Simulated scan of single mutants.
Amino acid sequence: MIVSVNNIKLNFEKSGNGQALILLHGNGEDNKIFDKAIPILEKHFTVYAIDLRGHGSSEEIKEYHYLDMVEDIKEFIISENIAGPIVYGFSDGGIIALLLASMYPKLLSKIIVSGANINPKGLKAKWIILFKVMYLIKKDSKVKMMLEEPNISIEMLNKIEIPTVVLVGSRDVIKENHTKLIVDNIKNCKLQILDGEDHGSYIIHNGKIANIILENT
């Protein structure tokens, strides 16, 4: 399905019944990464799996910025008349969820985020080096965004009042102390460290994330 929001055309898939659950993928992916999770989740929720701008079947763009994506999802929620959705976001999707909850505190009912960072320094050093090399070779603006953004302040985290769950793999690309910084600065926040998992091993084409979402809702 296609919807026009914030001067961009977004593709999304809708299925199931119940409370609204919005799924947001990571950088360079699309909603198909949730193919194993959606059949489980749609038994409990009305699931909206969105392709972020410039990803999947959504409209192509030249420059990528997290704040643009935040406005896309805000307008999507309003245009689809979705009341108090839960938002689950992986990686970039988690960044967007944090920003949404901070900037529009009355819009959502809960966020669950996996492998999110509030600034590029939250990435482990070897990954920053890898992304810099990737950008030098490919000049991919999606990679450029990860190297320069987001810029979420502690004050912004303090504004998040809805229940929040932060997930991170024990072998994630995000620094452990960075994840704890996020958790410590959100009022109603729970941290869950997934032993043996990396950044996306329990999410991408994997039903584990569905069961984790159900356990936390």
Rank of each mutant, 00 (worst) to 15 (best):
V113S: 03
L23E: 07
Q192I: 15
S114Q: 13
I40P: 07
Q19S: 14
L123H: 14
S153C: 02
L191P: 10
P39T: 11
K121R: 08
N206K: 12
K142N: 02
N211M: 14
D92G: 00
D35N: 15
N27E: 02
L130M: 13
K138N: 06
V3P: 06
I8G: 03
D140N: 14
I212V: 14
V47Q: 05
D92M: 07
K180R: 14
V113H: 02
N177K: 13
I128N: 02
H55F: 08
Y104I: 04
G207S: 14
I38C: 09
H65F: 13
L191N: 09
I78P: 00
I193F: 10
V168P: 03
I73C: 11
D72E: 05
L123K: 10
W127R: 08
L157Q: 06
A125W: 01
A83P: 03
I203R: 10
K144T: 00
I162T: 13
L98E: 00
L108N: 09
G115E: 04
D35P: 01
P105L: 03
K132C: 00
P85W: 05
E161G: 12
I182E: 06
N158F: 09
F12K: 06
K121S: 13
D172H: 09
G28S: 06
K175W: 05
N188K: 12
F76K: 01
N17E: 12
V143W: 00
I137Y: 09
C189I: 11
W127L: 06
D30W: 05
Y64L: 04
K144V: 00
V168C: 12
I38H: 05
N117G: 07
L41F: 08
Y88P: 10
N206W: 05
N27M: 04
D30L: 06
L214S: 10
D30K: 07
K175Y: 05
K175T: 11
E161A: 11
K139G: 01
Y202S: 15
E75P: 00
I162R: 04
S4Q: 15
N117L: 12
I33V: 14
P105S: 04
G89T: 04
A83H: 12
I40N: 11
S57D: 14
E59F: 08
G28D: 04
L98V: 00
N6G: 02
L214I: 11
N158Y: 11
I129A: 07
G94L: 15
